[in-house]
Amino acid sequence: MSARVLLIACALLCACGVRAQAGLDYGLTPERIAEDTWVVVGRSEDITRGNGGNISNSAFIVTRDGVVVIDTGATRRYGQQLRAAIARVTPRPVIRVYNTHHHPDHFLGNQAFADAPLLALPATRAGQRDDGNAFSDNVYRMAGDWASGTEALVASQDARAGSEDVGGHRLELLALHGHTAGDLVLVDRTTGVLFAGDLVFLDRAPTTPHAHIADWLAALDRIAAVRARRIVPGHGPVHDGLRGVEQTRDWLRWLDATLRDAAERGLDMAEVMRLPMPEGLAGLPLARSEYERSVSHLYPGYEEDAFRHRAAADGQSVQQK
């Protein structure tokens, strides 16, 4: 009797266990967006236990010589499932992986590609080294089991600006910055596709934890000047033309003007977080929460300027011991 109960309990436990394992499937489905070119589009959300960190875009180009991967996702599990998805498209080996920048949702899947050359800009590699452990802890906090076993694997080689032929694709690398200290943009001149990393967001509010707005705007000008046929943003849908560049630019200009004006009016941070947003931007997914985060990241700099402006206006030192 008790043996039978145990057996049933065991069977139930095993069944549930299998289901829990199966539940951690990102369901990555590569979409073909140009010749030899595939994108796995993430959700326009924050990292949660529901999405497991599948919130950013990864891409790969199947060249004659092998597969070039652009970004590896937020967890080791994502990286493994991305690699499996690539293998369903082509039997060719992964010959190189680029990390567009050092944010966790773009490189914490590197562990699944440890046998391939992992390339990133020097500033990106430095960021991965400095912030990687904190990032993987935080992703685990937000995504839970999806992130188990995830560790920051720093890119093994420097990526450099310039162009080269890879298996019949003319690939050009632009070394930019503004979203972070190192933002790699990859242009496939053969297909006309530009992989923008997080310099371009579309239909999802941009994030700014390491942003420098003036540099970011300058980087967007560089991207626009490429005149790419199609753009793969770091977050949001693949699109033709400059929709993403323009939306990202509008957001950054509004953010800059709003924070500067608030600091010059003497508002404090929690008050600034409550300011209304223009209708066109307020409708973007995560607009309010990203705006609040941006106030935390950027407002102290504008406050510092506002204190200095007063000092300059009075022409005297502001402090005494």
């Binding site: 941070m269 008050e271 935390s296």
Partner: peptide, 16 residues
């Protein structure tokens, strides 16, 4: 008490 629902920076949580 005005404060962000999520503290982006645990060292500097703004409150009004």
């Amino acid at each position: 008490v005005l404060a962000p629902r999520v503290a982006e920076d645990s060292m500097n949580v703004p409150v009004t």
